[in-house]
Design a protein around this nucleic acid. Sequence first.
DNA 1: GCCAACGTTGGC
DNA 2: GCCAACGTTGGC
Length: 137
Amino acid sequence: MNYWLVKTEPETFSWEDLETKGSSMWDGVRNYQARNNLRKMKTGDILFFYHSGKKPGIVGLAEVIKEYYPDPTAKEGDWSVVDVKPLQKLKRFISLAEIKQTPELQNMVLLQSMRLSVQPVRSEEFSLIQKLALQDQ
DNA sequence: GCCAACGTTGGC
DNA sequence: GCCAACGTTGGC
């Protein structure tokens, strides 16, 4: 099983929107690296759901429920989507600032490659962040 | 609102 | 194939 992080602007599509919908197509990816990551996702892989913008950070956990297929919103080009469903909101919001302050998380793709909207997360990073979310801050 | 980091485009 | 110009993302 692999872990990923997907970014979204909450004004466009938020964690609450995903919970309301129940499941959703992850569409609109128009970056090759991000697309290639989407294509590596397998059913059952877990995603960190990240809000960018005013209050950047990780909000919740989602799961891949359908592997990649052509993006119906793409007018041209070879783009893909996967389907995801919400699993649970993190017990505690993990802000980008907190990730930046955590020594063990300095190698996260999130910090190395700030603009990539679909990115892999190492399993150590995934479990540490989950642990942090259970702690009081 | 600013600006750095990137990605893309297009001229040569 | 190089590189300047431009557009976009996203943190601050």
